[in-house]
Every structure is written in structure tokens, then in C-alpha cells.
Design a protein around this nucleic acid. Sequence first.
RNA 1: GCACCCGUAGCUCAACCGGAUAGAGUUUCAGACUCCGACUCUGAAGAUUGCAGGUUCGAAUCCUGUCGGGUGCGCCA
Length: 583
Amino acid sequence: MKSITKLLTEKVSAAFEKCGYDSKLGVVTASDRLDLCQFQCNGAFSGAKLYKKAPFMIADDVAAVLKEEGIFGKVEVVKPGFLNLTLTDEYMLELTKEIEADKFNGVPQAEKPQTIVIDYGGPNVAKPLHIGHLRSAIIGESLKRLARACGNTVYGDVHLGDWGLQIGLVIAELNERYPDWKCFSADFNAETDAMPELTADLLCEVYPFASKKSKEDEDFKAKAHTATFELQNGREGYIALWKEILKVSIADLKSNYSKLDVDFDYWYGESDADKFIPELMQILEDKKLSYESNGALVVDVELESDKAPMPPVIVRKSDNSSIYATTDLATIIQRRKDFNPDKIWYVVDKRQELHFTQVFRCARRADLVPAETELEFLGFGTMNGSDGKPYKTRDGGVMRLSDLIQTVTDASLARLENSSFVNEDDKESYAQKLGMAAVKFGDLINHRSKDYIFDLDKFMSAEGKTGIYLLYTVSRINSILKKTGDCKAELNGVYTEAERDIMLKLIMTGDTFNYAMEEKAPNYICENAYQLAVSFSHFYHENHIMDEQDEAKKASWIALIKLVRTMIVKHLDILGIETVENM
RNA sequence: GCACCCGUAGCUCAACCGGAUAGAGUUUCAGACUCCGACUCUGAAGAUUGCAGGUUCGAAUCCUGUCGGGUGCGCCA
């Protein structure tokens, strides 16, 4: 179904046209002044310039037509030329019923569904997930769910960092520690030689160690670069070792992502793009885009309009190995072939913006995708500690994602300990859901491009805009519905102001989804979910459903809170948040 | 040095292409349970939108300058 402002815009536009004005003036938005009206149209102001006529005169003309519509309880023209609109209760009830019956819960479906690839997650193999990966995972997951809910075909691709220098570092370090491993010898035979048993813990320890070492030890750094090059050029022992690293890492990553309830459709890595690199290089050469500079192969991506120097993008390092720009470009070729997408979204730390600007420009110059394919960088900010600096552990190290999850799960468990509503058997699994709800909501309520401060107490609170408050609201509705399970449920009227408020919020939901999708920003979904919950809580305190003697009223209320629950759950699902039965 | 982003209530954030009285949450204070879950709800207080100009019927929003913070700037990802 259509969003309400779209629907009203059509009606008001038609009214403008009927009065002899440009229909484009009829844009309707949600009201800034809920005390005056539900919706407003400011088109008369623009019209005043166009037609050299006082805005209120134009608004008056249009209002006269709109009064005939029958769906408006109030059409008012105020002061200079505001056109204020309020719906009748009958029409609001009708719209609410439409949402109730709609299989998409009122989420407007794309007129032209598109194929979208979302590149998010971006973990590196052989490196534990840390909190830096958290935002990409939960923002990307949420955008994926949002785009899907709007009727698009969406593929989530984890885009594993499995082909760069970091692997070379790990291989070089393992070589120094375990020189006896067969895979390091030149005559390694993949068929007959045994591979060592690796563990995730070992890899997690080796990478940071090797990374630090490479910064202090030039000799070691050179070895890592050589290992990277040899791996990328098919040295058998390294390939075999790399496969082992991959196997162990991916298993570990999958278990962590599943705790986050983040699910990728594809587990492609940079290495999967490797086979498209020759094609990429050929295209760049054929189009005379690539040339040698300081020993590396580069492509110019400067534009006339650039205000700052734009460095060329390096597509092959001077040691002949590929770099992330190479794999990102080759991945674009791969995605075009596999999915032929309309859009590719990159949910990546905003500090990588320059890199992606370079990659996109290079892809355009080389026509790696059709001109109408959108390549969009959706950068996100960092999660900071209370000092406003990137979140660290107490000893100053990078906090592991699994530690963060443990912290919030423990806090949730403590909260559930005293709850008489939850069975002992459920407490563990509920605590995980509560913890994830707290973290995800606390993250997603902020606009994705902004940094924010991680505050455990704030996120775990049931007061305010938190995931816990929303879960609590849902569980309270559950509780009522359990007790009124045998009663009739049917929307049949608007009896109180509080219901009117709930219905308006429900009706506005379609616009929220449209806007969130347009902006690719889940924070609007968070806000709307919270608004729905607040409206419910208000209604709940004012009206006693179970004791209500008027059967029709009771039936309508039950149906209404059922719908509120459905809608909150829908919002939370798009945020990647699971609810609990009770808490 | 150059470029980009950000400065809104004590704190954390909103404000949909420039619109009405700049909204929420939190904190503080004052209230509401014999009643469907008080992990709740209601109310009050709290803002010269960093600063100075400009554009116009109208500016948190656009332009210029300035101060403060963050980020990035060829072989890491």
C-alpha cells in the first residue's frame, strides 16, 4: 500500500491543479504542529511567488476543493498560507484496517524492485572480530532487511579480507615459529604432505603479533610482502596453509555472526575476485588507463572539479602483488557477472571514503559496470568509549566482539535473575536476546555516519529510547493478549485520543520506511518503533482493556494492540532484533 | 599545509528540498499503583542552534568569514 503522505500528496496535487495551479505544489508532509493538524502542505508559499498572489488566497482555493474529499475531518488555512489537514476518524480506522490486512504490514513496496548487493561485515580471516566490525555487521544487516522488506532483491556479501598483506604476515610469522611445517618447504606436495592443525586462538594471537613486528622489523616486513606475493601467485604450500587458515577462521566467524543474528548470503572473499584480476588488468590496459608510476601500476582518477589533490589509484604494487583497490575493482566485475545488480552498497568505516571514491571513479572510467549501476559508499562512524575515543578494553587494547557480547549478556542475565515471568530454562537464551537488543538498538538509533558513545548502563536501561524498553513493551502486550486470548478482536472504532495517536503513528509508518530506505538510515526505524511503544504505553495507562464492559470497544482495543505488537516486531526485525515472550 | 565532516538544553541525540512555538531521551524536581506487568505513566524546569556578517516574506538548514573538534591525504584494509 501507498504511504499516507504520498496518497495525500496525490489528492492535494489534484486540488492544486483543479484550481489552476501547478500540481507540484501539492506536496504533503507530516505536521510540524501536531496541536494544529496531522498533515500540512506548504505549497501555497511557493505558489505565491509563481502566481504573484498572496499565499493564503491560493491555500483558500485549494482548501475549498479538499473539503469535498470526505476523508478530511479538518481542512484549515492558517496565517500566511499554511494548509493544515486532519483526517476523519473513519478514514483513520479504514487505513489502520488496511495495514492490518496488508501482508507487508504497510511497508510500501518498491514500484520497480531492484537488485542490490550489500558489501558489509568485511572481517579479516585470521583476525578476531572486534568492535570495529560490529557496526558494519549490524548496520549492513539492517539495511539488507530494510531493502528486502521494501520488495527488493538483496544479496548480502561478507567480502572477507582473505587475500591481502595480513595473510602474508600470518604466513611469515608461522614460518618463523614452525619452520618444520612441510607447507613451508619448496617441494611441498598437497597430495601427500600433512597439514598442521590450526586453532582460532592461535591465529588470533599470531596476527596482532606479526602486525606489530612488521612495523619494527624491516626484514620481517619484507618476508611478509614476499609471502603475500607468492601466495597470490599460487605457491602450493602457502595455498594449502591459506586454505587451513580460511577453514578455521570462517568457522569462528560464522559462530560469532550467528550470535549477532547476522546472516550473509555469500561468503565471498577478496580471493574470489582474484580470477577476475587478469580481466581487470586487460581492460585497464586496453582502455589505456593504467600506467607505471614509481614502479607501481596506477590509474588516474582526478576530476576537474576536485578541490583537493586526488592521488591515482594503485592497482598493482611495485612488488607485483595486488592491493585492496585491485580486489575491490575485480569484485565489481565479479558482482556484475554474478548478480547484474542495480546498486552496490558498501557499508564500510567512513575513514575509507577516499579509497572507495578512487575505486568507483576507476570503475566508471573502465566501464566495469553499466553507467546506471549505482555504486554507493555508506560510511559509518566509530563506536567510542565514555572518553569520546574509540572504545578500548581496560588495558587499552582493542575489545573483542565476543567479549562485548559476553558483557551485555551477563548484564541481561542479571536483570532476568529476579524476573518471575521467565522460566529458568529460558533465562540464558533470553539474556542473549536482551543483550543484542540493547547493543543493536543503542547503535542503530544513531545515524550511521556519526560516531557514538557506548554506554552499557544507558543501553541496558528500560527507560528511554532503548532496545530493552521496546522488548519490555512487546512482552507487556504479550501478557495482555494471553489473558484476553478468548476475546473477540476487531477494529471497529476510535474511542479515545490515545487510540487516535496510535493509529496516526501506525499510518505514518509507511513514510518512515520510505524515508529510511531513501536515506539508507535505520535510525528512523528505531525512532518510529519507539514512538509506537510510547503511544501504546500511554494508551495502556489510560485504558483498562480486561475490565472493559463495552464488548465492541474491548474487541477494537485488543485488535489495536495486537497490530501495535505486529508492527513493533516488524520494526525490530528490520533492525535485526529478536523479541522475547516475556522478561 | 590541503580537503571533507561535525559544533543544537547540563549530558546523548532529532528536526524529512529553507516554513508555524527548534523536538526527544537522560538528568533534576513534582506527581500517579486495592486496577491487564511501576523495567511503566503524567507534569515542570532546561536553547541567543559555537561566533560575526550576508541572502529573503521566512535560516539550525543556503553563502562568506572566524573559532573549536574529528577524519583523510600512493604501494595496510
